[in-house]
Amino acid sequence: MVKIINLKKKFGNFVVLDGVNLEIKENSLTFIMGQSGAGKSVLLKHIVGLLKPDSGEIWFEDKNIVKLSEKELQKIRRKIGFLFQEGALFDSMTVEENVAFPLKEHLKLKKKDVEKKVEELLSAVNLLDARKKYPSELSGGMKKRAALARTLALNPKVVLFDEPTTGLDPILQHTILELIADLKEKYNLTCIIISHDLPLALKFADEIAFLYQGKIIETGPPEEILKSSHPFIKRFVETALINDKGGEL
């Protein structure tokens, strides 16, 4: 579905991505993990063409999106959803206007059909009560759910989530990920999730990829990650599981 080959990116002299190789399988839920500042957001932004790499390839279906012009990218982007870390809701619009926005921009729907679709999306993320509110009136979790509804409006095939659970309380983290897993089944999505929460990843991921020092140092299903011999992952796993008071994993 998505294949990244030897992707490199520097900001000035500062190397962020130093030859990333990663393949995302269709209909999978892949977690990309790594420390804060490791370049996870930068990697994700490359996949939708918000950033251009210095070198390397990113294949989406049969196209190398690195080579595409902004106009050609627009076509691809309609198939990709992107959930920003802070939601990036339009703060001049209410929740329902936010969700209706991509529908109005791209589909020639009747007003009634837009309303119906917005209602369906908002009930899928359990946010119908807040439809008339502005983003500034929402809590962090509500913002993420509203943004999720907007992201799903155009029926994307692939959805990228930049830290969907960071800053939420543990119960809400689970709720959001259960929601994502449900929506994935319901709409047949391929999901790429950035997180540094290992217990969550172990519970929900089909695949986990570790980004470290500009490279993907390990990928595989959760069981394999736990057995990894890479020193960084070992340390990451140990600290994460000791800190996790629920600790039965």
Binding site: L50, R77, F84, Q85, E86, A88, D91
Partner: peptide, 21 residues
């Protein structure tokens, strides 16, 4: 101020992502 705040809160990137110029 309005456009700048859209920029730093990634609302402009959000437009791009939604295939809006």
């Amino acid at each position: 101020a309005e456009i700048a705040s859209m920029k730093i809160t990634e609302q402009i990137d959000a437009l791009r992502i939604m295939a809006v110029n």
